[in-house]
Structures are given as C-alpha cells and as structure tokens.
Design a protein around this nucleic acid. Structure first.
Lengths: 201, 201
DNA sequence: AATAAAGGTGACCAAACGGTCACCTTTTGC
DNA sequence: GCAAAAGGTGACCGTTTGGTCACCTTTATT
C-alpha cells in the first residue's frame, strides 16, 4: 500500500541511476545531475536513499534479483529445441534480445566498467558473461543429446565453446554499436558453423 | 640527450598512472595520490604534463605504440608450430605471459573499465580482446593447414573459435585472481580439446 | 663564475562533490 | 477535519578535486 508513490519515485531513481552509472561509472556519476534528470532537487533523493552508496547498493540488489530470476532457477529454462533449426532460432532470439534491450545493454556496460571496484559486480559479471549462459546451454545440450538431436560429446565443453565466442561478440556490439549489423552477421555465421559441426546428426 | 632525467620521471609518472587508472578508473584517480606515490608534490607533475588529461593521453600513446609493435606488424609473428604439441606449448606460453605480467594485467583492466568513456580505449579494446589475437592465429592456422599439420577448414573461423573462449577465461582470471589456478586448468582443458578436435590430423 | 633552463615545493584558488538542515506542500490515516 | 507522515526545496557546509603561482634548488651551458 505505502509503496505506490514511494515505489514509483524510488524505482525511477534506480532507473536513471542505472543509466548514469553505466554511462559514467560510479565515481563519474553525481547526484545533482541524477536529480536534475528526474526533475527533482538533489535533497529530494535523500528522502528515498540515505546516500549515493545506498542508491548503488539498491541498484545492485535489483540486478541480483533480476539475474536470479533469469539464470539462477530451473523454471526459466527455455523448452528443449527439437531440431537444429529450433536451436538456431532460439539462440538468435536470445542474442537479439540481449543486444537490443536498453536495460540489458546498460547493465552490461555497468558490469564491465565496475567489475574491479565492487565485489558484487564482480560476481554478477562472471554470472552474466560466463557461468549463467554456459550453465543454461549445458542443460539444453545434455537434453538434446539424450533425445538424439545432437551428437554425443561433453555438453559442458560444448556449451562453453558455444556461448563464450558469442559473449565476446556481444561485448563488441556493446562497445562499438555502429558495427552492430556487421557483428550480428558474424554471430549468425558462428552459430551456423557451430550447429553444423556439433549438432547436426 | 635532454631526455635522460626528464624521460625517467616522465615515464615513471606514466607507470604509476597506469596502475592508478587501471585500479580506480580515470575519474577515480587524483593527482595528489599519484604524485605522493612517486614521492613528488602534485605541482611537480605539471612540470612534465600540462594536465590530468595530458597524462592520460600520453599513457594511451604509449599503449598504442606497444600494441602496434606486438600485434600490428607481421615481424612479431611467432614461428609456425610444426606439431600439435608445439602449438599447445606456444599457446600456453602466450596465455601464461598474458595472465601473469603485471603490466598487461593493468592494461587489460584499464581497457575494460574505460572502453566506453574514451574512443581510443574503445579501439584498443577491440584490438586487444578480439582482432589482434584472432588475426595472429588466422595467419598461424593458415600456415599450418598449408603444411598439412592441421586439418583444412576456415582458418579465420577456427582462430575466432580458438581465441575468444580463451580471452573470456583470461578476463575471468583478471576479475577473480583468486580463482587463477582453477581457471588456468579450464584453459588448458579447452586448448587440448580444441587441438584434438581441429588440429590433430 | 655567471646564467639560464629544468625540476621541485607549498600555499593557494575556484569549482564540484556528497551530505545536512530548516522549511514548505501534498497525501494519508483516523 | 486534522494531525502526522511522506515528499520536495534551496541555502549551506566541509572536503576533495584539478590547476596555478611565486619561489627555491639543482644541473647544464658558455
């Protein structure tokens, strides 16, 4: 109940904080600009959070919840693809989303720029860039191998071989958005090559 | 001639600037601490560089020269490996160096944390994390294929498939140095897997 | 020996920063 | 209808920041 107006401003602050922290880093972000962008005075921020660090921590809390939902639990697993084509489309859809969704782009930037300055960011970065997707595709590949849709091999190794090059290219996309089209082409080529080599029975 | 003392202090400033910029970012670095670490007063810095930004730019200049030497030119290519074993050792030596050399670790941190805030860093990051090593191994693989040491395939694709997972794991090593041993094991496993699959004739 | 250039110092400055405070206005619960 | 809580404001504070300046000391040059 009490949350309605409170929550709206409180979460608007976090929304804008994500933008600014991602774009300018923690140190590079100042509360005056943050408040101005929200049409607030700086002191108003302190009605919702007790310090700059508190805003930062609340933002990380929210990110952790989000990533817990997306990668942590077994419930959010996509359906096991029934063919190479389905795997291809599943993969490309996930990549498309990850490359274009504004919030995820900002999150990725924040993780990259602050990974050495904050322990939680460090953990989240590993989850985001490596462990999370690898784990998911390990499960997927294992299921596909069991169903005979995919050649039998080490599912963990293949998941790593599949996800980490894509992650590299997505980072490139984030760094040089003007090359997005070109890089998306490379991603597609790689995904096709991988499926041809390792999945096609 | 005039360079001797000048150059020494001037380059000591850059050495320490690399450490601080890498550890705390551009914004997070202040000239008082930088001077103090060198046993100088802050105003002494201004006898060598006209501003903080000038130090930053001089550091990037030096990095660009270094990377030009290492990856840019054809002269610095390692000898083409004559066997799987040689490729394995060449690769592992390069990775070992990259993971343990303090200067390269700091450079990697700097590239990651500042890639979105500076155009030159952005370009260098792509060179370091992607294009540089990929290009090198493309040449290597092409030569090995021509000599019949390696199965014929798309050398560019294979170089990408080889280098980008390693880059991901090296970044993990940089982010979580306490897991270095474990991650080095993973790297070795991956490299062996790759060579078994794609090189072994 | 005299001079000037290079290297170094500490005091100082204006601007920007995170944070606080007294005060005002709107919502809300009873 | 009214008190209190929640939301919002502008002036202010101490600290830190990049940068300057007048002055000193060492090193080269002639």
């Amino acid at each position: 109940m009490e949350q309605i107006t409170d929550n709206s401003t409180k979460s608007r602050i976090l929304d804008e904080a994500l933008v600014m922290f991602a774009e300018n880093g923690y140190k590079g972000t100042n509360l005056r600009d943050l408040a101005a962008r929200l049409g607030l005075s700086k002191s108003a921020l302190y009605k919702h959070y007790e310090s700059k660090e508190a805003i930062w921590n609340a933002l990380l809390d929210r990110m952790e919840v989000y990533y817990g939902d997306r990668f942590g639990s077994a419930e959010n697993m996509p359906k096991t693809p029934k063919s190479c084509d389905e795997l291809f489309h599943l993969t490309m859809n996930m990549i498309d989303f990850t490359v274009h969704d504004e919030r995820i782009i900002l999150t990725r930037k924040l993780l990259l720029t602050e990974q050495f300055h904050d322990e939680r960011v460090c953990r989240l970065a590993t989850k985001h860039f490596l462990a999370g997707t690898q784990r998911m595709f390990t499960t997927l590949f294992r299921a596909m191998m069991a169903e005979g849709i995919m050649k039998k091999d080490d599912p963990e190794m293949l998941a790593f071989l599949y996800t980490s090059p894509v992650t590299s290219l997505i980072q490139l996309c984030t760094r040089e958005p003007e090359r997005q089209e070109e890089v998306m082409g490379q991603i597609e080529m790689f995904v096709k090559y991988f499926i041809d080599t390792y999945v096609e029975v």
